[in-house]
Design a protein around this nucleic acid. Sequence first.
DNA 1: CCCGGACAAGCTGTATACAATTCCGCATCC
DNA 2: GGATGCGGAATTGTATACAGCTTGTCCGGG
Lengths: 220, 220
Amino acid sequence: MSTSVDLVYEQVRQMAANFEFKPAERINESELSKQLGASRTPLREAMNRLTAEGLLVFEPGRGFFCQPLTPELVVHLYEVREALETAAIRAAVERAGDDDIAAIRQFLSDTAERYADGTPTKEIVRLDEEFHLMIAGLSGNPELVNMIKLTYERIRYVRWIAMRERIDITHSAHLHIFEALENRDAQAAEDRMRTHIKTHNAEATEIVGKAYSNLYVPQH
Amino acid sequence: MSTSVDLVYEQVRQMAANFEFKPAERINESELSKQLGASRTPLREAMNRLTAEGLLVFEPGRGFFCQPLTPELVVHLYEVREALETAAIRAAVERAGDDDIAAIRQFLSDTAERYADGTPTKEIVRLDEEFHLMIAGLSGNPELVNMIKLTYERIRYVRWIAMRERIDITHSAHLHIFEALENRDAQAAEDRMRTHIKTHNAEATEIVGKAYSNLYVPQH
DNA sequence: CCCGGACAAGCTGTATACAATTCCGCATCC
DNA sequence: GGATGCGGAATTGTATACAGCTTGTCCGGG
């Protein structure tokens, strides 16, 4: 059947991940549905899914809101990332085939020159996510991968800001993690992944804390 | 405003967690909505949320289905549990107050005598989940707790079956985990939690593997 | 000047109607 | 006998209408 609802879903999903909605303001269903060229019914279905995924917040009788972006939330989501991704890389060390590992090495060398100052931050974040998801995929556990993906979407906006000052060292950190995987050293891989994420957590949280008021300035 | 949609949501959620729907058969929206005394609109909203939570599966143009219950899924979800709960207890050791720990000791002694052969399996599973969620709560990370809760709901049905033969040792295992927490021994707590979940994983997976065909026998 | 209540406008929650699609049984053909 | 195509019934996808709640404003009282 037609994919109108999925189209709406993807659009609203992106809008939510990009924080195109003002926090603490209800999302006007009629207006948004007109804007997206659909009626309220499929829009509400999409927003219900996004609520379950944590990208939106729902208050009965009041409507849907963008998830509030607080330093606490960022800390919590990074902790979740840490738990999931350390488990994932541990499984990856055990289960990955040599060809899978070769593919990641290829990816790293292919993209090495793009980790430069000229590259847009969003592009860097995209590459970063892709690398992490490749590793997570080697765990062979799609549930794990899904949860990691979801967590990414909820903090992507922060990462666009936080990544600005970290472009240069991201690639070398990834290489460092990858080498432990390549050497089939589960402990080192896990430790390096944990350190990597903890570092980003500290930075992202600091930035959100500092920019807390700025982030909430109306964006229209 | 009225909470009709939330009522429907809770009911369908329970039905899905209890596997009252036949797998591989589409859920008839009109029929179910009549049965629940609501119209299709709030029912579909509820089912969309449950789809995002992983309790239902949605195929465009065909409708909603119960999540398929396979040995692979059970393994994957238990791995997720392991990742999340080991992280949670590690955080709990660091952050829990002495009074929080006392509350858990109280809970364990209060419920000790109910871990007996006469108690219904569902009740045991409920107590088990409550214990684990109390510990997870001490992590101070609501996102972590939410994900753990969700994972529970997706494997609860299996646990009802798998728990039958494990009633006696569950309580002592919990005590063992708790003591490491009480001693503020993060490593021991994490290790014991991991072992605990791995054991259950192996058992549950085995049971699903054995009962695979039986579970899918039409239940009408 | 501030607070409180009532009214009005707007928005959300739900039911229902209809269009589009899928599904299933049956007949037909190879 | 098995595959294929067709048509009607059933089911899903979406729009729309309306009821009930929420919210903001305005007016009156303290």
